[in-house]
Amino acid sequence: MTDTAWTLTAAEGELQILTAVAGPAAKMGHRLTIAMASWRADVQWRGKQPVTVALLVDVDSLQVIKGEGGITPLTGPEKGVVRSNALKALDARKFPQITFTAEDIAKTAGGYRLGGDVEIHGTSRPQTVDLTVEEVGGVWEMTASVPVLQTQFGVKPYSLFVGSLKVADEVTIRFTARHPT
């Protein structure tokens, strides 16, 4: 059997964080789409089976793409404030990277189930990721969507007005990538 390796980066896909709003004043807040602009996923293969996946994300690469909802549209300067608040909540200087390492990989009907550990904000927890794979014209189109509770990693969701308006604890991590088969 031949061992091969794939490397995926932001050039081949997207890694996004989708937030919701919570609290009595939630209608005032924006549901955010945040992109992580610098990441790398290394996939080791043994024959036709992936055997390890290692994802490394640079926290400081966080970019606020858009905000939906709220009383007024999210402006450019407000995106800068949101970015600053998110980096502070993630304590990006102390914890500059987020990692996911999977060595328990099983084929599923629609792709692969990855079992491993994710580390965010210095806290490591087990995580399962269902990766959907569709082959289109000799290219694998891969997608995954994973809910994550910020507080399970010691991240305090950002809030305003004594907690009346806050980022919901659960965020969704969305991954998409394309790679030739």
Rank of each mutant, 00 (worst) to 15 (best):
G137R: 03
V51E: 07
T75W: 07
V136N: 10
G110F: 08
G137E: 13
G163L: 04
L32R: 04
E68T: 14
F100H: 09
P77L: 08
D91Y: 00
V59Y: 01
Q97H: 11
L160I: 09
G67I: 04
S159H: 12
G163M: 10
L74C: 11
P24D: 13
A144I: 09
D169N: 15
M36W: 00
K166A: 15
K79V: 02
Q152P: 00
D3N: 14
L18N: 11
A25H: 07
I34Q: 09
T9S: 12
P180I: 03
E119L: 05
P77C: 09
F161N: 02
A106M: 09
E141N: 05
V171K: 13
L131D: 12
P73I: 00
T2P: 06
P50L: 04
P96M: 10
Q49G: 10
R125E: 06
L114S: 11
V53C: 15
L55Q: 12
R31G: 06
M28I: 05
K48E: 15
Q63A: 15
E103W: 01
D60K: 15
V21I: 04
P73S: 05
D104H: 15
A11R: 13
R83T: 04
T101E: 14
H121Y: 01
A102I: 04
Q127M: 15
P96S: 10
G163T: 06
P77Y: 09
S38F: 01
D60V: 08
S61Q: 14
R93D: 15
G115P: 08
T4S: 15
K88G: 03
D117S: 10
V64I: 13
H179Q: 07
T19R: 03
W6E: 14
H30D: 08
I173H: 07
V155W: 00
Q97N: 12
G111K: 06
W45P: 12
W140A: 14
N85Q: 05
F153K: 03
A109N: 09
A54L: 02
Y112W: 13
D130Y: 04
K48C: 02
V146K: 11
R178L: 12
L32K: 02
G110L: 12
Q49T: 15
E78K: 09
L160F: 07
V162D: 04
V133R: 15
D117K: 14
E135T: 12
R178I: 02
S145T: 12
V136P: 02
A86T: 10
V57I: 14
A86L: 13
G138I: 06
P147H: 03
P180E: 10
T108S: 12
M36P: 02
P157E: 06
V81C: 03
Q127K: 13
E78S: 00
E134D: 10
W140P: 02
H179P: 01
P180Y: 03
G122V: 08
W45R: 08
A102E: 04
Q152G: 00
Q150I: 07
N85S: 06
G69P: 03
K88W: 01
V81G: 01
Y158L: 12
R178Y: 09
H121L: 01
A86Y: 06
R178M: 13
T108M: 07
F95R: 03
T132H: 15
Y112V: 01
V57A: 09
V57L: 12
A41Q: 04
V171M: 13
T4M: 11
E14Y: 05
V21D: 04
A25N: 11
W45K: 10
K94F: 05
P126E: 08
